[in-house]
């Protein structure tokens, strides 16, 4: 029994390491913005995402990893107009799309786990976030990045809530 538990823990740790390795440490986004990792992959228990001062984007995760990825972008303490907010939101959304696409492509090379993301959806209230938090997900990992543009920098957090349908691959 001890050996089965250790084997499970070892596979989960291995997957976490592969997930960390599959996230690019830095990315240039069409020479107009840069994403830089500010914190490595960590476990989390609950999605404590405040809707105040945050823009939250949802991607569905489908394939051998299934679940949701929530990308949260902080505009707290930023003095920006509504037009600027739409502009930065668009840069953030596409940056996350690119980061996650490269992540899943690299993850498949590392682990053989094949997964895709949906097109992004803007979350306008926390109700859906609360719902996702209530699902049973074996994988609850987060990482943090800084999105740097010419004029501003923003803290971004990526929350992965997923289950691995093919745990024998890792």
């Amino acid at each position: 029994m001890g050996m089965v538990v250790n084997s499970f823990q070892s596979r989960e740790n291995n997957l976490m390491e592969k997930i960390h390795l599959s996230f690019s440490p830095a990315l240039s986004i069409y020479n107009q913005a840069v994403l830089e990792r500010s914190k490595p992959i960590q476990l989390f228990n609950n999605l404590e995402i405040d809707e105040n001062g945050k823009v939250n984007i949802l991607f569905k995760l489908e394939g051998e990893l299934t679940g949701h990825i929530i990308c949260s972008f902080s505009i707290e303490d930023k003095v920006i107009t509504q037009d600027e907010l739409f502009h930065y939101q668009s840069i953030f959304t596409e940056s996350m799309n690119i980061l996650l696409g490269k992540f899943l492509t690299q993850l498949e090379e590392e682990t053989g786990l094949m997964s895709l993301i949906s097109s992004p959806r803007l979350l306008t209230n926390n109700k859906f976030i609360t719902e996702i938090d209530s699902f049973l997900h074996a994988i609850k990992l987060k990482t943090e990045y800084q999105l740097l543009t010419m004029q501003n920098s923003f803290d971004c957090t990526i929350y992965i809530n997923a289950n691995n349908k093919n745990s024998s691959k890792v």
Partner: peptide, 24 residues
């Protein structure tokens, strides 16, 4: 696409795309 797994590229070719580029 931001995704470039083999099956994504194959799907693109199978519908007649002349090229595929991974973002960014």
């Amino acid at each position: 696409s931001s995704l470039s797994q083999e099956n994504i590229v194959i799907d693109a070719i199978s519908v007649g795309a002349s090229d595929f580029l991974q973002k960014p």
